[in-house]
Design a protein around this nucleic acid. Structure first.
Lengths: 160, 160
DNA sequence: GTCGAATTACTCGGATATATAATGTCCGAGTCGGGCAGG
DNA sequence: CCTGCCCGACTCGGACATTATATATCCGAGTAATTCGAC
């Protein structure tokens, strides 16, 4: 069970877009250069963020990606869901009711699978923790340790 | 990010081993028949449970698998860790420090990655929720809805 | 009848294929900006 | 000098390879029960 690498990329890209505060779209190539990741593959992840409504995309010469809303309105859960999809990590296949059954199918279907319930309980905690943290919180944590990060990022962006 | 199907199998097998209360090892073939899953592949998952110290295995004619300790001493976290391995789902690759850097490497290495920290916080909640639930709890939840499950399971096992 | 050793069938365990998903690449459609001609 | 149109380059977007992981299978090593023979 490994999470897609794209989640990390997506989160960092959102932060960078906020720090740049470019006022205009930032192309994939710039972001890819900043993190040394394959541009085309990063583009694919950014597309997913657009579909999720986190970013907006602009085509054409000075095109690229922009934040669709402020970081305070984007949770870690939003980012993860955008890249990983909405489905749960644990997928109950109801093996309990297969085979030379224990109990009648009817009764089994009425009661939920306890293993599944336990898994969902844990996963709900995970999702709640992710939803409780906005990208603004994360950005603030970075700024606390490295106050000049936004300024330095802008500086690099304008020179490169 | 999908969890291995083997986790579901492993959890249900542990429950069944407890319900059977056979007093002797139960072979893979029986468990596989009960759930209609590929025997050889199930065997692989059970091996992982043995390596994790959740089950004990016995070779030979009347061999098979047994619980190494009571269900009260086995948490959902144990089962997940046995199948999925110990590593975290989110793996920080430190992309922030790659590329035409923002800030000096030295300073960056001193401060932890805030994105990673946020992810770990969520994942810790998940792990805590899993560790808080023992298989005994899960078994109790099943028994509450279907009190005869253990009896029926034994009955099936002895006839088949 | 009892004991012991060889045999045999059964089971685990890991090495080996196959299917599926994640990662990475490529090319076309669309669009914005700039250049150029005409007024 | 200003305005409108055309051209071209840039960017996104999705279709297409490639690699890694999960799923599934197979066969050998080892063991315990059973059988057979000897005492």
């Amino acid at each position: 069970m490994r999470m897609n690498e794209g989640v990390e990329w997506a989160a960092h890209c959102c932060l960078m877009l906020d720090w740049l505060d470019a006022g205009r779209p930032v192309p994939t190539a710039k972001l890819a250069a900043a993190f040394e990741v394959p541009p085309a593959y990063l583009n694919k992840q950014l597309q997913a963020l657009v579909r999720a409504g986190i970013l907006t995309s602009t085509a054409g010469v000075r095109g690229g990606f922009q934040l669709a809303r402020p970081l305070t309105k984007i949770t870690m859960m939003d980012v993860v869901a955008a890249i990983e999809g909405p489905e749960e990590a644990f997928q109950c296949t109801e093996i309990r009711q297969r085979g030379p059954g224990v109990g009648t199918p009817e009764r089994i279907l009425r009661t939920p699978c306890a293993v599944n319930a336990a898994m969902r309980r844990a996963e709900t905690q995970w999702r709640k923790a992710l939803a409780a943290q906005t990208l603004a919180d994360v950005s603030a944590a970075v700024t606390r340790k490295a106050p000049k990060v936004a300024e330095q990022t802008r500086e690099w962006y304008e020179t490169a």
